[in-house]
Write a protein that binds this DNA or RNA. Structure first.
Length: 516
RNA sequence: GGCCCGUUCGUCUAGUGGUCAGGACACCGGCCUCUCACGUCGGUAACAGGGGUUCAAGUCCCCUACGGGUCACCA
């Protein structure tokens, strides 16, 4: 019997997500329990969205949780490189092999044509999908056009009839008609593979035997199985785990729930408690005990104990569990050490004290003046969440504009935040001072405190996001109608501001022109 | 909308044909106690609905409803 090998394959396109940790945990436990290996691979084939910062943050967060891998971009291994952006040649060769065998073809269609086709299909109430336009180009024409440098993608061929049967470790057989499967792009016009190609090639080359992944992948499983078949490889066992959910049951998302592992770290959750909580999402110990370590989970892990209903990620129960870990598993000394590690450390304190030195009269003023640096969510007085010159809805809209800025401002530093938020004030047609006041209240709970931009940087994006969202909740969360409306209004304001600046620049130049 | 997956207390779950449907979080009440928290005792609360199969269905099958996912040159 071959050794079990599993993997987690995060895409470095954002904050470290608890869902990634959840899937990683199950893959880790499954591999360990069978005496196998668990590896980490970075799926950074999306050149536009992938960043090294995100990759580093994801590795850091998974390690913080106590998850380790036998092979990965940081530790190496015999099947590297473990970063897909460094494996382009491999995918290209495999795509070529598929073209040669007639399982894939070059597609020279323009995005515009694809768009038109899709619209027509939608109008005719058909399932949108590639119409096969380039599938029957002759090999010589295809090769010639590619050689001439014409931009193209590579698509896989898909049977038009019959059904694909997927054997899911948890769900048994799942049948999907081939007619439902699109002729997926395998190689993008930038020469990099899509997930579907890269994932299959790498899982095979890296000897992955079992793929435990989110339920969201079920519908694309036929493509993957088909590719394994085209290559003549044995496919790994597939197992689709239920998705973590928001309280409203939708797929866990940043918009509705904190999803970043860093948020939980900054909120003061213990890594062992968070990991423990993720372990009780869709899974339970045979004896139903709720508190358990990673080692205990590995020892008792059993895929058949995974339940299929999507579990709601419940902050309240996580907090309760975290409390248990704090009071049951830490000595007083260890507790002190954890607190120090968390925020009472020289680094954090050393960045805070300079902000208050000029504002204190006695050292004892420190506590009250900096309390919000050591809190999770704060309770601002709703009566203070106002802006001079704006009505209630105006404030709500302003906070939402800020929320978009908080997401878009990268890196999240004093120097990037200041211009971004000053501009937001300008877009709102407000005096910076009047506008910023509500942000002081939002982030620190008080209308006056340490300098806003430095404070935001120190709190970090995750805590700022949470406090902002909390303030928005107090005032009434944005409706989806408002979402669209406010977004459009923001774009209009940005456009107007850009034009105004352009005009001002032109006016500044104009006087130079001779008036003879 | 097409296709696919799912459905036990509000939430996380136990349950694999015979249980008074159990536990936990949250909530409510009692006790403990210098306050609070912890702890402890107790309470409210669920098999989505309808058909089958069976001596017997939360457990098996079908239909309906509801929820979710997916339909990209993103993963």
């Amino acid at each position: 019997m071959t050794v079990v090998r599993t993997r987690i394959a995060p895409s470095p396109t954002g904050d470290p997500h608890v869902g990634t940790a959840y899937v990683a945990l199950f893959n880790y436990c499954f591999a360990r329990q069978h005496g196998g290996q668990f590896l980490l691979r970075i799926e950074d084939t999306d050149q536009v969205r992938s960043t090294r910062e995100s990759e580093a943050a994801i590795l850091r967060s998974l390690k913080w949780l106590g998850l380790t891998w036998d092979e990965g971009p940081d530790v190496g291994g015999p099947h590297g490189p473990y970063r897909q952006s460094e494996r382009s040649a491999i995918y290209r060769a495999h795509a070529d092999a598929l073209i040669e065998k007639g399982h894939a073809f070059r597609c020279f269609c323009t995005p515009q044509r694809l768009d038109e086709v899709r619209k027509a299909q939608l109008a005719a109430q058909q399932t949108p999908g590639y119409d096969g336009h380039c599938a029957h180009l002759s090999a010589t024409e295809s090769a010639a056009r590619a050689a001439a440098g014409e931009t193209h993608v590579v698509r896989m061929k898909v049977p038009r009839e019959g059904v694909c049967q997927i054997q899911d470790l948890l769900r048994g057989p799942i049948e999907i008609e081939w007619a439902q499967v699109d002729m997926q792009v395998l190689l993008k016009s930038d020469g990099l593979p899509t997930y579907h190609l890269a994932n299959v090639v790498d899982d095979h080359l890296m000897g992955i035997t079992h793929v435990l992944r989110g339920e969201e992948w079920i519908s694309s499983a036929p493509k993957h199985l088909l590719l394994y078949g085209y290559f003549g490889w044995q496919a790994p066992q597939l197992c689709h785990l239920p998705l973590l959910r928001n309280p409203d049951k939708s797929k866990l998302s940043k918009r509705k729930n904190p999803t970043s592992i860093v948020y939980y770290e900054r909120m003061g959750f213990l890594p062992e408690a968070l990991l423990n909580y993720l372990g009780m999402m869709a899974w339970s110990m045979p004896d139903e005990r709720e508190k358990f370590t990673l080692e205990e989970m590995v020892a008792h892990f059993d895929l058949s104990r995974v339940s299929l209903g999507g579990p709601v990620f419940d902050q309240a129960k996580l907090s309760w569990l975290n409390g248990r870990w704090i009071r049951e598993s830490l000595t007083p000394q260890q507790f002190g050490e954890r607190v120090a590690q968390w925020a009472l450390n020289a680094d954090y304190l050393g960045r805070i004290t300079p902000l208050v030195q000029g504002r204190v009269e006695r050292l004892s003023d420190l506590g009250a003046m900096t309390s919000f640096f050591f809190q999770g969510l704060i309770e601002p007085n709703p009566a203070e969440l106002t802006v001079k010159g704006l009505d209630a809805d105006g404030v709500r809209r302003a906070l939402q504009w800020v929320s978009w800025r908080v997401e878009d401002t990268t890196p999240f530093t004093r120097d990037t935040l200041e211009p971004a938020l000053r501009e937001t004030a300008e877009l709102l047609g407000l005096k910076t001072k009047d506008f910023l006041r509500v942000l002081f209240v939002t982030f620190t709970g008080k209308p006056v405190s340490t300098p806003l931009f430095e404070t935001m940087e120190l709190l970090g994006r995750d805590l700022c996001r949470a406090r902002l969202r909390h303030a928005q909740t107090l005032l009434g969360l944005m409706t989806s109608k408002e979402d669209k409306k406010w977004k459009a209004e923001l774009e209009a304001a940005e456009k107007a501001l850009a034009e105004k600046k352009l005009a001002a620049a032109a006016a500044a130049v104009a006087p130079e022109t001779p008036t003879l």
